[in-house]
Design a protein around this nucleic acid. Structure first.
Lengths: 119, 119
DNA sequence: CGTGGGTGCTTGCAAAAGTTAACACTCCTT
DNA sequence: AAGGAGTGTTAACTTTTGCAAGCACCCACG
């Protein structure tokens, strides 16, 4: 599946460590806040382990940044996913729409915005 | 340890299954698109497995939605996340749309919802 | 019929995730 | 100097992920 597997090679880990240090947190403090063991966090930071989705989310919360930011660092999120107003966001989060329907609604919304700009 | 543990309890899995069905994809089709095995996807959808962050990201891509959307559904539900389905609300609050445009978007949104019900 | 392909599901098993209990080191305090 | 408490790291272990290979079922087509 092409995705980078473990090994001392972790951009994500380095980023987490830097964020942790910026927040003046010890390995144990952040690990506790995330509900994981300090040993495990240490290994994640040095690229010897890949966190599960739940742990990644917990880390994002503990570091007070969005999961998307961590994903971006993990190299698994297109930075282009960024922007989007509240409407587009609400559409993306709606669990009852198909991908195609979301696409249509967002496109229509953005075309409305565009038209209004030139007023 | 705070992080939610497995069990047939899967909000996330149900959501993934629903999205897959809305896209008219078979288990094998989505699994292939995500680079994971069909057996594994089946188990994820029924709540017997928790995907790693990499697999979760692949699923988000395969379903054409953002990783955060999956996270929101993943049951790490901050109630503060403002109850997803408020597309209509977001549209009504948007200051950059005309009354007519709001009407159109909401109507289209609701018709999508209606169509999906009868799947 | 019958067989080939479609669907989702079960079953081992190797390989990772994740834990507990240690380690070595530093900095304070006594 | 001897202890305590802080730091990050390692080692041995258990639990979970994720896959290959197969099951049972349904539907179309010769």
């Amino acid at each position: 599946m092409a995705v980078k597997r473990s090994g001392p090679d972790a951009g994500l880990g380095e980023f987490i460590r830097r964020q942790r240090e910026l927040g003046h947190l010890s390995v144990r403090q952040l690990a506790d806040a995330c509900g994981i063991s300090n040993a495990y966090l240490s290994q994640i930071e040095r690229g010897y382990r890949n966190p599960s989705s739940f742990v990644l989310k917990a880390l994002a919360d503990g570091l007070e940044l969005s999961a998307d930011t961590l994903y971006a660092q993990a190299g698994i999120l297109d930075p282009s996913d960024g922007e989007a107003g509240d409407v587009a966001e609400a559409v993306r989060r709606d669990p009852y729409l198909s991908a195609r329907q979301r696409e249509i609604l967002i496109e229509m919304y953005e075309s409305f915005r565009k038209v209004n700009d030139s007023d």
